[in-house]
Every structure is written in C-alpha cells, then in structure tokens.
Design a protein around this nucleic acid. Structure first.
Lengths: 293, 293
DNA sequence: TATCTTCTAAAACACTTGTTGCATTTTTCG
DNA sequence: CGAAAAATGCAACAAGTGTTTTAGAAGATA
C-alpha cells in the first residue's frame, strides 16, 4: 500500500482534529485510494460521517476544498503506476511561463523514454532486433513526421553495412525499391496516428510479396499492428499540439545498438571502413577552423 | 503501466467500432487509469469526443452503463496497489544480455533528457525560442545524422505556417535557398561531432550575409559556437558506437512547443488550415482498412 | 446554572454528472 | 444515383456532486 506525503500530513495534524474529523481521517488513512475512486458522499457514508465533514477535513488540512484533496490522491495513484513519473510531479514551477512549458515537456519526455524499460517493451525490442538481424535486407519506411526516425535508423545502419534500404525516393518513387524485395527481407514500418495512407499501402503491398512486416508504432490498435509480425510500441504524448517522436527515436536507436551488439567485430570493421571513406572525402572538419575575419 | 483484462477486451472489439468509438477507445487504451480518476465528461474532453460517445462505448463493450465501466477500472487500480510485489520483481529482472543493453541505453537516454531541465538549459532554450520567434524567416540546416532533427523541426513548423526553410535540396542544392536570406532572418544550424564541413561552410556563408546564427550543438567548443549568437547544448553520449540524437530531438521539440505557445491562437489557426488541406488530399487513413483477404 | 464557544446535523444551493431522445449528417447498399 | 441504415452531435433531463448556510447540540468556563 502506497502512502504518499499526505499520509504523514494527516497523522501530524490528527491530534488537533475534532472527533468527527478524526473519524473521517482514520477511514482515509486506512483506505487512501478510495478518496480518488469514489465520490465524497459515498466515502463519507463508508466512514460513517456527514458529507460536510469531509469538506471540513480537506480545508482543515490546508486544501482549498475537497476536490483539491481528491486531486492529490489521484496524483499519487497516477505516479504510483510507474515510479519514474514521480519525478515529473516534483515540479518546482519557478521561471517564466515559457520555461515552465519547456520543463514540463522535458520531464514528460524523460519519463516516456524511461517507460520503455518495462519488461514487455524490452522483450519486444530484443525480439524485433533478432528478427531484423536475421533478415537479408531491411527496407525502412517512415513518411511525414516519421521520416526523421526512419532516416536516422537507416543512416546509422549504413555505417554498419548495407543491409538497409530507405524507402523514400524523390518524385514519388518511394516504393520502387520494393521491386526486388523477397520473402527473405523485412520491412520496418514506422507510423503514428494519423496514419499516412501511403505507408499503409506500401506495407500492404510488401506483405503481399511475402515480405515480413515489423513495425514501430504508437498503439495496439494501429492499423500496422494487424499486418505486422512483430511490434514495438512507444508513446507520442506531448504537452503541445503535436506528437512527440523522442520515444520513437529512442526505440530506433536501441534497435541499432542491439543490432550492432549482435555482431560486434563485424560492426567495428564496417565502422572503420566508413571512417576511412568519409575522411578521404573530406566530409568532416578535422580541426576547429580559426576565425579568419 | 498495468493493463487489466479490459485492455485485451477493448483491443478485441476495436475493429468493430465506429470511428468515434475507436477514438474514445484509443484514448482509454493509452490512459486506462484516467477512467477511474476523472469524470466522464473530462475524459471525453481529453479524448476529443462527445460525452455520449463514452456512454455508447461502455454499452458497446457490454457494460450496463459508463458507471459500471468506471467501476471495473477502479477495481484494477485497487488490486494493482496490493500486488505491487510483482512490480518489484520486474526491477532488476535478469533478462538476456540484449535486454540489458536496451535497458541501460533507455535509462541513460531518459537521464540525458531530464538533464536538459537544468536552469541554464531552460534559459538558453527560451532565449533561443524568443529569437526564432522574432525572425522573419528561419533557415534550418542539419546534415548527415542531424538531418533527422532538422527535418523534424521543419516539418512541425510547416504545420504552423511558412516561416521555415529547410536547407536540404537534392543534387547538392542544399544551400541555394540562402540566396534570398537577409539580416532579418536566422539560421538554425544543428551539428554534432564530427562536424560536417558542409554545415560549417554554409553557416559561415550565411553569417557573412548578415544572417544571425542560432545553433543546437553538442559542445561548448563546437565550431558552431564561435559564430553563433545563441547556443543550446545537448549531450550525445550513448552506450553504443554511435552518438545519440534523442536529446537533440527533445530540444528541437521543445523549441517548437515554445514557438507555438508564443502565438497560440495563430498556431491553432494554421493547424486547422493544415488539417483541412491534408484531409482534402486524402493523406491519412481515416479508418483502419478492413482486411480484404 | 448561565453563558460562551466549539462542534455537528440537516437542508438548501449551484453546479456537474451520466444518460437519453431527437435531428442531422454520413455511410452503405441496392 | 437515391433510399435505408448507421453513426454522430446536440440539447435537455433527472440524479448526484461538493459546498455553504443554518440552527441547534454538546462541552467548557466562570
């Protein structure tokens, strides 16, 4: 039984309460969850107290009213679900309104990434990594907002070899690379709600060619789930009007990491080759350019 | 996140639901606890659905009404609290070596995003957001691995208007858009070590035209810092051979959020326009395609 | 005991809740 | 295309919510 800071607060002030208030408080100490789960009137009935007593108790404890009191209890339940989000609750709220939003966004993103550590997620991740590792070739498909994730996955994988093909040609040729896809290949499809129609069409087409589908998507009821062999889920919730792709990118990177760790020596070999090539192409600034002006 | 038998039940019947029912169900799948913790009307508001739809969903799932439905969810929370011994088990849980790496990666990523909440970071973020907000136009530059971040920033911003120009033309035309850049504009340059030479060259060229540089980069000694007016830093440390871009993407999203919040009503207006256009173009799958095979 | 203060019970209040019937829109199918 | 059916939004409803006010009961003080 979890007992938030409220628990201690109630005990502290217990001795100063009137008999009725104590009776109400005692019942709440024994059934903290019920505060959030049932109505005040029902709670007061169960506690053998008048409804008004509950309001008085809430105010006695320093809340603006019973609804505030219940809100706190609800929060305890919410964060109790995954202890990581507990940190998100400890917002000190300082700073300008802009900084407040930024802080809320970042804390929520951090928590969402942490939530991917659940056993179920981890299992799915390693399953998918295994499947991708066994594939002859990996076709990577992610349109619109998911382009960033798809491309990043592809980019990292190109450093490790040439297993991946990015389905994102210009001039509407996105899907053409699938021409030579076979049953030995896998399509990694990435999409979030609202689901791009083109992604679904291409995935369906690939499936009909016998290509196995693996998907990174945002919900159990994503249309991709119905046609995919393996699924990894992530959350897209954000404090803003648009969906976040930070957890999705994290998933993508983890998959890259797992794939690389399957064949550590081979990966290192390929990396060296990429390094040599890129430096011979003068791609990177090897030293910080002195200011000439 | 605990997901009772209700979870499976909803998924099972999901395909038979109408669109509105699906939207409600989707929200509940993602926030099962909220069903018990907030009122139906508030839940429906958060799900973007009419209150009646919730009642209908409950009945569709075989409950006598919404209150029954909520009761079930409350029960899940009640028993979940006691059976938290199970959660302790999943903490260090053995798992395969692959899962170990995944877990380490995710926890580290989560921590790195959380570290962006430091006051210094928050201040830089809001400063940069202000500067970007005042610019006539924002040129966005991110090559190679940073392409994903640059593109995602640009993509989100296109939903809000046409302030941004993505410097990423095909066939080596990346920088051409800078032709019409003036001192009223800002270049948002994103780069990590090893720094792409082309990025530095373009940034330098822009600066000579009087364009102010704002950069999202990985170090105080990044070459971009020397020519940039404002800087936001993030970490790229990862448990793998490649650098992570998850914190960078988080920074980008926060900037988008801040920019949108500067002009909330204008942003909403633009969003509606984008919505109308995209749906008229039939871009998204409005319903899950029934399996025809 | 008389008086004052504190506490409790009950009722009235304004408001929100979950629900339902109806008109309208959208989809389906002949 | 047009009729039938399904799905949706809207508004009204009764019931229940948390709160406040009131009057009276209980207890303390002198």
């Amino acid at each position: 039984m979890q007992k938030g800071p409220l628990h201690g607060h109630i005990i502290e002030r217990f001795d100063d309460m009137s008999i009725q208030l104590q009776q109400a408080a005692r019942h709440i100490l024994e059934h903290p969850q019920e505060v959030a789960l049932v109505s005040m009137r029902e709670l007061s009935r169960n506690a053998g107290v008048q409804p008004s007593t509950m309001t008085r108790l809430a105010k006695f404890l320093g809340f603006s009213g019973y609804e505030d009191f219940r809100g706190q209890h609800a929060d305890v339940i919410r964060v109790g679900a995954d202890g990581f989000a507990a940190r998100a609750l400890q917002r000190d709220g300082g700073g300008t309104d802009g900084e407040g939003l930024a802080q809320r966004m970042l804390q929520s993103l951090s928590a969402q990434v942490a939530r991917l550590c659940e056993p179920d997620s981890l299992l799915r991740l390693s399953t998918v990594a295994d499947r991708l590792g066994k594939a002859r070739r990996i076709y990577v498909l992610g349109l619109r907002s998911c382009h960033s994730v798809a491309w990043h996955f592809h980019y990292v994988m190109t450093l490790l070899g040439e297993k991946t093909v990015h389905l994102d040609g210009p001039a509407g040729t996105s899907g053409d690379a699938l021409i030579r896809a076979t049953a030995d290949d896998v399509l990694l499809a990435i999409s979030i709600s609202p689901y791009s129609l083109h992604t679904l069409e291409l995935a369906e087409a690939a499936r009909e060619k016998g290509v196995e589908i693996v998907t990174i998507t945002d919900s159990e009821v994503s249309p991709l789930v119905t046609i995919a062999e393996h699924v990894v889920l992530f959350s897209t919730e954000s404090q803003t009007f648009f969906h976040t792709l930070v957890p999705a990118l994290a998933v993508s990177e983890v998959l890259c990491g797992l794939l690389a760790s399957h064949d550590r020596t081979g990966a290192l070999e390929e990396l060296k080759r990429a390094d040599r090539h890129l430096s011979s192409m003068n791609t990177y600034a090897t030293s910080i350019p002195r200011r000439k002006i």
